[in-house]
């Protein structure tokens, strides 16, 4: 099981307000698929327009990174810059 933290905004849209959800996954790809299964639309939203931060490192294109129960995982908007 991995713990995934969501912003309160994302949570109110997809997870009935829960800002922390648990899914079974060994990498980000599985995690996103599991989130989509549990909360329809959330996985698509993550793939299209969000970043995943794992242990403090923000990943704009997460996919293959491994995750485990000790990982600190946050879903947040994509960041660009000027």
């Amino acid at each position: 099981m991995v713990k995934v933290a969501l912003t309160s905004g994302t949570a109110s849209q997809f997870t009935d307000g829960k800002t922390e959800v648990n899914v079974t996954a060994q990498n980000v790809r599985q995690m996103v698929a599991a989130l989509e299964g549990k909360f329809p639309g959330l996985g698509t939203e993550i793939q299209q327009s969000m970043s995943v931060a794992i242990d403090g490192v923000i990943l704009p294109d997460p996919f293959l990174e491994t995750v485990n129960e000790d990982s600190e995982i946050f879903i947040l908007p994509k960041i660009g810059g000027g």
């Binding site: 912003t7 309160s8 905004g9 109110s12 849209q13 800002t19 908007p77």
Partner: peptide, 21 residues
């Protein structure tokens, strides 16, 4: 307006709402 539930019925100039807490 995105980011709000339930989805609004009327179009709006507010395209999106974000929240961090």
């Amino acid at each position: 307006t995105g980011g709000v539930t339930p989805k609004p019925e009327k179009p709006s100039n507010v395209a999106n709402r974000v929240e961090f807490a």
